[in-house]
Design a protein around this nucleic acid. Structure first.
Lengths: 342, 342
DNA sequence: TCAAAAAATGCAATCGATTGCGCAAAAAGT
DNA sequence: ACTTTTTGCGCAATCGATTGCATTTTTTGA
């Protein structure tokens, strides 16, 4: 199909009866080439429709200007917004972004990470799959000193930058808000506490109770995977116990949503009789009736920060190895589902 | 930092006192190498932690096993789901996916497309920016015979595959549904009809009216950009005219949502007094109260199809040039906002 | 036993851009 | 006028994997 379709620096060199080195230097604006020669070369390059072969350049330079992203699932609002933030920064800095999703499967994550390594990405941004309990695939990057940034679900023990939110503070803030709204028995729907993020949220919840001299009641803390079904079962159960709660702080928006749906169905008034607050400000949280209070994670900004950190690391030649953990601010968004006081 | 960090086929060759060619052939399972030698080489490769340098391979093979995607905005549900579908297929087929977003800006789109070209992607999948009215940047690919697939917003005049939905049929189906539900004066909120997709939806709407011997009333067709504000202004206006409609078919879910919110606020009962149907099945459409009827575009499947088509084209050496336009089915999702009959 | 055929492996060029080193020409200095 | 310095450019190696065309080794056949 396309044999000699593309013109190379050699073609230009031949045409101008000069060497390819000179062409290369001219196009890279090397000061060792005179302006006159540069002009001639550039003009011809344009005329011949020269497009540099970046692959060749990458090979020689051992740099691809590409960063890899690994997320559990691309089409989840938090992740796609994060990716959008990364792309924004990467584009400005002249980097390409290769994305792949682990589908929350360890095996796929491993393959992806290896593939990105072989493709010589200059850096990697990753959020772990839910199954991930070994990290050898990431060691690959660390050993070769390739910058690595984790976000959201991070590995504490790995030498890499981390972008997180202060889940403890978030849990505290959410619970305090419910207390301020006059709720007396506040339950918590927690995710799997093997993940530090969920554990921290729970600890924040407990701390808030303590601070306000409220008792921490074991029965009011439920652990599950925060799916829609999980949320429904949890609220059902909570309403069935002897002293049921009058509010719940949910570990995510999805489970909070199903609680709202269920409470509406059985005729419990939100927020008057029961308060709900979710986590992460999914798009639907705003439009459900009643609208859902929640905590907004700055997904886009986290992507921006991750990309800045990674690219900074890539381009920072003096290997100053300080692995930062950047904690991003979260915003408490108070909507109808928990707001009953002025 | 990392000098001789990576082992190459030459390192393996030296160790085994054979040539690099043999190592290369062995690792590629070339039948010209004896099984015994292959085994020795593979074992050592594993032991030495050999990782092929794909960049070098790409250069030599003139193939990158990478496909590029250009979308207006990554964090829009339709697009991120589409991308997810592409990634799924691409991964299985051994391709990487480079994504970038045009932010609906022609200039950025041009830069991106050029960049992807220089990076020698093996194929490109694109949905146009809203500003795109010239196509030279895509000609680059066509001239070099690099496979190209458009989806959603497509360029009719370009030689490429296209993945679309039958917007005409969709408009017909949505409107017919409203008619079947007994609505008498049905309005339509249309997007910019320079985009063929919005025009076709409108034509389907008109066709449905005709088929049912209903008059087509100019005043009941509103044109705007379908934002939230636009939706609100449209419904306000529609209710103010002499013979107001009793239902609206909206060009997207966002505008339909704002109509629902507005109608609720002013106390008009949905679906009893007024019917609404949106378009594209955004996640929020299910949870808004009343839940919104809409049409589901198979975003993930479109991504799958696009990737299959593209990769098929990439790997199909006999240049059989038939540019397909694949029309994907849409599903009418009937929810509360338009359902008043059994 | 020896030539012919088959199998296994190596040599060297190639993909296209980059760069250390060196050489020649021009400019500056004495 | 002649040496020294500066400027401009080319040679050839390099990045790592691949492959057409030998060349060597082994196997087969008569």
């Amino acid at each position: 199909m396309d044999k000699k379709a593309s013109v190379t620096i050699h073609d230009i060199a031949r045409e101008l009866k000069i060497s390819a080195s000179t062409v290369s230097r001219a196009l890279n604006n090397n000061p060792r080439i005179s302006q006159a020669t540069k002009d001639r070369i550039r003009e011809l390059a344009l005329k011949m429709g020269y497009q540099p072969n970046i692959i060749a350049s990458n090979l020689r330079n051992r740099k691809t200007n590409t960063i890899g992203i690994v997320v559990p699932l691309i089409n989840r609002h938090f992740f796609s917004t994060f990716i959008s933030g990364v792309e924004d920064v990467a584009f400005r800095a002249g980097y390409n972004v290769i994305i792949s999703q682990s589908n929350d499967l360890l095996e796929k994550e491993k393959k992806i990470v290896h593939s990105l390594f072989s493709n010589q990405v200059d850096g990697l941004i990753a959020s772990l799959s839910m199954q991930t309990n070994e990290f050898d695939h990431f060691e690959l990057f660390i050993k070769k000193n390739i910058p690595l940034v984790f976000f959201d679900r991070v590995v504490p023990e790995l030498k890499a930058h981390k972008i997180v939110v202060d889940d403890f503070a978030v849990g505290l803030k959410a619970t305090q808000h419910l207390i301020d709204q006059g709720y007396k028995r506040i339950a918590h729907l927690a995710g799997p506490t093997v993940l530090n993020t969920y554990r921290a949220r729970m600890e924040g919840y407990i701390e808030a109770l303590r601070k306000n001299n409220l008792p921490v009641i074991e029965d009011l803390i439920i652990y599950n995977r925060l799916t829609r079904i999980d949320g429904q079962e949890a609220i059902r159960h909570l309403l069935s116990i002897k002293n049921p709660p009058d509010a719940v702080f949910c570990g995510n928006d999805t489970s909070a949503l199903s609680m709202i749906v269920y409470l509406k169905k059985i005729g419990i008034k939100i927020p008057e009789e029961f308060g709900i607050i979710g986590f992460s400000n999914e798009p639907f949280s705003e439009v459900v009736t009643p609208s859902m209070s929640t905590l907004k994670q700055p997904a886009f900004e986290m992507g921006v920060k991750a990309a800045e950190l990674l690219i900074g690391e890539i381009e920072n030649k003096d290997g100053s190895k300080k692995y930062q953990t950047i904690t991003m601010p979260t915003e408490l968004i108070i909507r109808e589902s928990s707001f009953r006081k002025q």
